[in-house]
Design a protein around this nucleic acid. Structure first.
Lengths: 222, 222
DNA sequence: GTTAAGCTGTGAATGGTTTCACAATGTGAT
DNA sequence: ATCACATTGTGAAACCATTCACAGCTTAAC
């Protein structure tokens, strides 16, 4: 598991990336604060992170603040976005239009984001070729063609556990390089594909476990 | 952020607990393997974890294997469950019956688990006092009374961002000690309450980021 | 212009998690 | 019964992430 960047780009940990995404979100919301500058400890408090952590993270992406004034909000936001995003839009597919799939689709439906859900897929022919939440649903059989044609790089997987691995294989075949997996299954994918798992049952069990014991752990974002 | 257990119970990290939950899940599924014993590297492969990691985790909960034979499946499962669960059932509430809330409810509806969703809540009087997926929906105004009466300790929060903090305060007031938070907000809660955040938009952004760069990171479960 | 104040940037220290590597040991084969 | 083997259990090492702590700046005030 070595990785070495060409040199211009530093290697940044998954955790740091998650925090940067959070910083961006908190900075872009909350426009009622119209102060031009923000201190590391203020941003930290908004995100549940220490000020030192914030400064280190920002250093990594090359955002500089000014002593005694803090960071320029606008500049900071631009810097983080430049690091996190690439110029265009990234196209996303959603595979599996069950209850969860539909709920997620409705969540991402009216969104002005860099990430656009441009197609959905299902096996059930009762669902295919309809438009739900402004998104056409194709048969899974067409996944390969449609996904390749639409230049889809990222997929959300909300199919039943039994179908998850086979569907993931299809996605990888279609050129998808990142999967947000809701199926309660450990997917096997090639090294160049990034998988993030969200397992509701497991997350709930974890909460239940720690609710039982009083012990609070530190705050972190999924 | 110190923590010190009474002595009988060891202090175990959040990460380890997540893995134990995963081990349990993989062990209880997959009954087609009817081998009585399982090696650490087999369980590891099923979960995307190294064998050394598996052995260390199991050591922590006091499960012993046998050299050259591995771990007795049944014994192992029992050991992990004894560590993770307590005797009875834990009651769960779901607050917010929007699209996501309903999808989640349907997911947990017909479940034989130690965790039972026994009540749902919403402000919308069009939804309250109905039964969805076998679960009665109460007005949020009754949260305090109902949650206390039903001995609810854990809640899933799927209300809109604007209402999240206020609702979380109500939950804490009602005696809830663990919250699975889907609202895209950093909740402020007392120390004894455990919060796990699931933010769909942020998770998707993360996947998109790493899909862009080829760099795969190690496998881990949320 | 000078000064006091307070924040940033960061090397060093700390703390936590994972992997390494190997002695100890139970097992199955002979 | 004995032996060779493959695996466990676990100190120690390596690695990674976070916090500490402070020198160096910038700014604002006077």
């Amino acid at each position: 598991m070595k990785k070495q960047q060409g040199g211009s780009e530093r290697t940044i940990s998954e955790r740091t990336v998650s925090r940067l995404i959070l910083y961006r979100k908190r900075l872009s919301g909350a426009h009622e604060h119209q102060k031009r500058f923000i201190y590391s400890y203020e941003l930290g408090a908004m995100c549940g992170v220490s000020s030192a952590q914030v400064r280190r993270d920002l250093m990594l992406v090359g955002c500089a603040g000014s002593p005694n004034r803090g960071y320029d909000r606008r500049e900071l936001l631009a810097g983080i976005e430049e690091f996190l995003y690439r110029p265009g839009t990234q196209n996303v597919a959603l595979v599996g239009l069950g209850n969860l799939g539909r709920a997620i689709l409705s969540f991402f439906a009216g969104r002005r984001s860099r990430l656009a859900v441009v197609a959905t897929f299902d096996i059930d022919s009762a669902k295919t070729n309809c438009v739900t939440f402004g998104c056409r649903c194709y048969p899974v059989a067409d996944l390969r063609t449609v996904a390749a044609a639409a230049r889809i790089e990222v997929a959300m997987l909300t199919v039943p556990a039994a179908a998850a691995q086979a569907t993931a294989d299809l996605l990888v075949d279609a050129g998808v390089r990142g999967i947000l997996n809701f199926a309660p299954v450990t997917l096997r994918v090639p090294d160049h594909v990034f998988v993030e798992d969200i397992d509701l049952a497991m997350s709930l069990e974890k909460v239940a476990f720690f609710a039982r014991r009083g012990q609070q752990m530190e705050r972190k974002h999924a």
